[in-house]
Design a protein around this nucleic acid. Structure first.
Lengths: 202, 202, 202, 202
DNA sequence: GATGAATGAGTGTTCATTCAT
DNA sequence: TATGAATGAACACTCATTCAT
């Protein structure tokens, strides 16, 4: 996955747009004038840097997800134990769950995002690269757990990865539908998925 | 969850529209004329039954998901063992994974669908009801497993539900990203998530 | 030259547009909304009948020139002598000289009109057909003169056609630049070019 | 007709623009950035010398036509006989016929050019001056013919001018529509119009 | 002087919605 | 009841013009 370099202006446009989406605006109803306003620039300037509205939004999503992965990776690295690292992931989900431009949304969207943003189907801007990155991170996390002696069973790598992705998904599902689990605190939910994780890996 | 009754014409409109989406058309680019054409009726007729394009699409999604749940429920009921029932769920996912109007897409979309179809936020058309239905189904499945003696551990109900949702999610993730798991057959993936399920529930 | 059939609505659009151009509006500054207003219809309706603004204007020009040729032909036919017919042509030029959509403008524009309306370069809408029609008319006029015994010399057909086109052009030049010929009345100009015509053809 | 003096930069802008038009670009689709690129200067520089795009194009046309007249006049002067001079005019038309900025296009466009470039209607930039110049040239040509004894008849000056303009027009018409006169060579066409000229003037 | 990045007014085109038939 | 022709509000995109450097 190569890092595409963007100019300051392009990044400013991305940031304004991402902000808009974070605020809950339906990405499909965003107007070019909204993007311009959010970035505090003229409408025409957008077209000096991008070929179409579609392109701005697509690239902004890619950019945002890339940034988010960097952030998560960095944050995880500050933790010293397998458990702390895993909880750090859950914490991050908790913070970003409402963020429609989050890596999580991308991962769990069942390939849906490409359906909506046809631009993302192009090789150059593919989100497939992110899947790979996430895989690498999960593998590193698992190595950490094995080194620590927390993961002992000789399950296949695939089994382990599926377990991690599964518990992450179910936690985010919980968080998205808290109303159905009013008697379960977030702390309990985290502990529960961690318990599932350990049982599956041992 | 009350069952809303639709007229034949309304259902015809839904079916044409759902068909369109299943064919891969970006729901956001569907025009009223497309819906009319797909349903083989005049454009104006749509407005005799619905108040807006938004409403047609939203209700069609609700309708489609409801139908899908009925189908899955019926199919599961034909199986006699816990394992067969669980595998039936995986089989269904396999068949519907590319279906953007599937219950799975709704469940895992992290609340995304409402972001896109504001209409779905209205109480009357809420998809929350489906979450409840799915919960009930999962509970029934778990009862089945306990009765059969396959689930023995005294984990909390929440733990069990989270496990089931987690493995379903990870399987659908696998299926969506098969390219990253070329050496894993679908059969192996199913066996793997079933193994995770058993380990977590025992 | 086949006659393209247009619907009433299309013709209404043409007429409004032609009217606009006749009023002196620069065709290149005409807006779709102007065309719609002139035809007393909604802007969108234009696009139900034509694919683009360019197409409307191009087809309107073709239509208008075709109609004009029909009119001139009919008017000429009402005259019984060679001289009367020729003067009828001059009279028509006099009336249409300010008309930017006139056949004359097309003929003398040195192929310019296609430069401006790229659409007119397409075979289907070519104005070449008109050149042919005009040729036929000129030939008929010359036959008439010969029958009458007014044209006696055995000049080539090409010589005769060039003469007719030449005097028509010079008369229209005169009429366009009357300011340079303040002492020459239109009657005198007509008589002069008729005299040139006779000298060249005899 | 006074000669307007232009700076080197202004002339460079004119030349680039004229070149563009000669290459067949629709004058109405030329962008300021195109003009700047063609002149190899910055876009802003154009506005240091002209008030608007309209002004650049209008003045460039005026300039170009003026230059062309100078060229023709000079070339004609190199010829010693009436016939040679007249044929020189035809030769020039032959060379410039495809040139949309040519004096010929202006003269025969039935006042059309002003319709398109409103700026040209202003007194200061009027093309009327050119009409006068052309008249003078034609008169000089006619004097030459009389002196030589080739023009003998006592036709009015108006008759003579109309004749010259007529044959020039018909020749340019021939050249523009060569496809309709495939069996007539350019040489024959020239001879034909010269013959018409002589018949009318004698 | 010269530039070109930035602007936003302006316009072609689309399409949800209406309503006469 | 059903239709689809007609509409015009809405919006993506362009490009003449400006102005800070």
């Amino acid at each position: 996955m190569e890092d595409i370099k963007y100019s300051d202006k392009e990044i400013a446009i991305f940031k304004g747009l991402i902000q808009l989406i974070r605020e809950g605006v339906n990405p499909y109803s965003i107007k070019v004038s909204d993007i311009a306003k959010a970035a505090n620039i003229g409408k025409g300037t957008i077209y000096d840097y991008f070929g179409s509205k579609e392109e701005v939004i697509s690239k902004a999503i890619i950019y945002s997800v890339g940034e988010e992965i960097k952030t998560i990776t960095d944050r995880i690295k500050t933790k010293e134990s397998f458990k702390d690292r895993f909880y750090e992931v859950l914490d991050t989900i908790e913070k970003n769950i409402n963020d429609k431009v989050s890596i999580l949304s991308i991962l769990v969207s069942s390939g849906g995002i490409e359906k909506f943003y046809e631009f993302l189907r192009d090789k150059e801007y593919t989100i497939s690269n992110f899947i790979e990155l996430v895989h690498l991170e999960i593998k590193e996390l698992l190595d950490f757990g094995r080194t620590e002696g927390i993961i002992t069973a000789k399950e296949t790598e695939f089994h382990q990865i599926m377990t991690v992705l599964g518990v992450i998904s179910s936690f985010s599902y919980y968080y998205n539908n808290k109303d159905f689990h009013k008697n379960i605190s977030t702390k309990e939910a985290k502990d529960t998925v961690y318990r599932i994780l350990l049982k599956s890996l041992n």
